[in-house]
Amino acid sequence: MKKSLIALAIAGAMAVPAIAMADATLYGHVNIEAAKADGAKLNIGTGANSGSRIGVRGTADTGIDGLVGFYQIEMGLSTDNGSTALSTRHAHAGLKGDFGTFALGTQSSLHNPWTADQADLMLSGAARVLYASGVIGRVSRSAFYTSPNMGGFQFGGGILASDQNADKNVDAYNVAGKYSANGLTLGLSYVSFETANNARDNATSAAASYSFGPATLAASVTRNDFRAGGNTTPFDLAATYSVTDSTTLKVGYSDHDNSAKGYGVEVQHNLGSMTNLYLGYGEANSALEAAGGADVISTGIRVRF
């Protein structure tokens, strides 16, 4: 009931007819972190590795059997007094059915979610020295197709296109495949950047994760080829172990290439299914510090709704 009232309030604020929100689901979380980075003051605010957000998603009848319209609007939330409260994270609409899904707008690409995100397991700010193999996550002005799940296998692809970049009709394209079954997930993705505005020419990422009993092991690696020549091969390793049903220990290691390395440890404790407490520590080696990284200790609370 509370969610329905809030959803209607948001609809009114956005000047959307209430009837259009009839099947909407309100979701989000507030994540407040206290973090102290080496050489910096203590900071309390939103952030860590899962910024505060609020969203509405739902479906709509198309009148065609087996074809459903869907939408998602998600905004990042600033928790600072007097700051601009909202920033766009997702704003897309599409169609889904037995053929899979197709969506236009600001949405997640297939690249990071099917590869690097498999090893992105930290909730705390320890993640600031990790996540070396990520390339593109959420993208604007995009079109993506994702196949249905066929015995654990999925494939898909998409393009990014903006008239702000006049050199090419398509700014980038992404093709990817994923297999998931019996605790094992494998991902492979390729993205080509067609506009000279991006220093990368292309990137290929592969990832694997395996969950067994209370443990999860994950790894991700990316080959970046640059337009000016040269390449890098950063990779991430991660593991988690559930000590109890409520408490999970996590470790992470990232090689950012060029000798820059990051290490992270974290403990996450869940109070029920919607509230998470966390304490993490991230350490950057001297090469990563020279590139802007810093040792950090981070603790906080995330409450989902």
Rank of each mutant, 00 (worst) to 15 (best):
T185E: 08
G157W: 07
F226D: 08
D245W: 04
V56R: 12
D120P: 00
H269T: 05
D167M: 11
P214I: 08
A40Q: 15
G252I: 14
N224V: 06
G100I: 07
M1P: 01
F99K: 03
D225T: 15
D295S: 10
T146S: 10
A7N: 10
D98Y: 11
K261N: 08
V135I: 15
V30R: 00
Y263M: 07
D80G: 07
V243E: 02
V265E: 07
S142N: 05
E74K: 04
N149S: 14
S211A: 14
S189K: 14
A207V: 03
D167G: 05
G28I: 01
G97D: 08
K2A: 15
G76K: 06
A176W: 03
E33T: 12
G177K: 03
I44N: 02
N285R: 12
A260G: 03
N270P: 02
A218G: 03
I159Y: 08
H29Q: 10
I10F: 15
K261H: 05
A9N: 11
A181H: 14
A161F: 08
G63W: 14
G300H: 02
G280R: 13
K41N: 12
A37T: 06
K3S: 12
V129D: 03
I44W: 01
D163W: 06
T275L: 09
A103R: 06
A176L: 11
T46I: 05
D167S: 14
A20C: 00
G55D: 15
Y190C: 08
V267Y: 04
G39A: 11
F212C: 04
V170A: 10
N31E: 04
G45S: 13
V16M: 15
Y253D: 05
P214Y: 12
F193I: 10
N197Y: 12
T222C: 02
G12M: 09
S142K: 06
T232N: 10
R200M: 04
G293I: 00
T79E: 04
W114D: 02
R304S: 09
L160Y: 02
G152M: 06
A119Y: 09
L5K: 08
A85V: 09
A22V: 11
L123P: 02
G151E: 10
L5F: 14
K2M: 09
A93G: 13
G229T: 08
S133M: 09
S52N: 02
G94P: 04
T25I: 05
E74G: 03
A294R: 15
A93N: 00
R53G: 03
N49I: 00
R223F: 04
G51M: 01
D38N: 10
V303D: 01
I19L: 13
N169G: 11
A11I: 02
G282K: 11
L5R: 01
A20V: 07
T240W: 02
G76I: 07
S162Y: 13
L130F: 06
W114N: 04
Y263S: 07
G156C: 02
